[in-house]
Amino acid sequence: MNIFRLTGDLSHLAAIVILLLKIWKTRSCAGISGKSQLLFALVFTTRYLDLFTSFISLYNTSMKLIYIACSYATVYLIYMKFKATYDGNHDTFRVEFLVVPVGGLSFLVNHDFSPLEILWTFSIYLESVAILPQLFMISKTGEAETITTHYLFFQGLYRALYLVNWIWRFYFEGFFDLIAVVAGVVQTILYCDFFYLYITKGMSGCALPA
């Protein structure tokens, strides 16, 4: 464990908790893409199946359980409890255009052709594009609540910190995971436009240039 990976995990946890609390406190999921949250729940489900097969550390296991619990709770709040506030008219990204190619690619490019490994690869590829419905929805509505921009900032920051973690681990441990690194670069690049707006405009509740 290094400071970059720890900060990255905490940033990811912050993003997940910020979103869950925002929906719970305001009792509304306006401006939130339910499709992205469904994809994140799928990412955690397919990636953390090793919860049943291997124990790495208390930290590892507890964080995985927290991520899975929070992501399912978020999906539940969006599609069940506060369904009336779900903005389905603007959450129209065709997620099949993400899931199908990612599914195919995970069969073609992976570290090992075993079920757990293919599911892990699928979750890595899917995570890199899972935020697209949310970014697409914001570009359609042309605005984002302040708290939503903070969610996106921490969500994007986490994988950027993981990129630094991978440089660190390559330098000190001498190997790297090409699949995770390439997907992580793609994922972080998708946030660049948002990062620019978040930092220059503060983006605190102001309307985004469409």
Partner: peptide, 10 residues
């Protein structure tokens, strides 16, 4: 091989 996947990462 010089790269393999990390199994200890979230």
């Amino acid at each position: 091989k010089q790269w393999s996947r990390w199994k200890d990462e979230l």
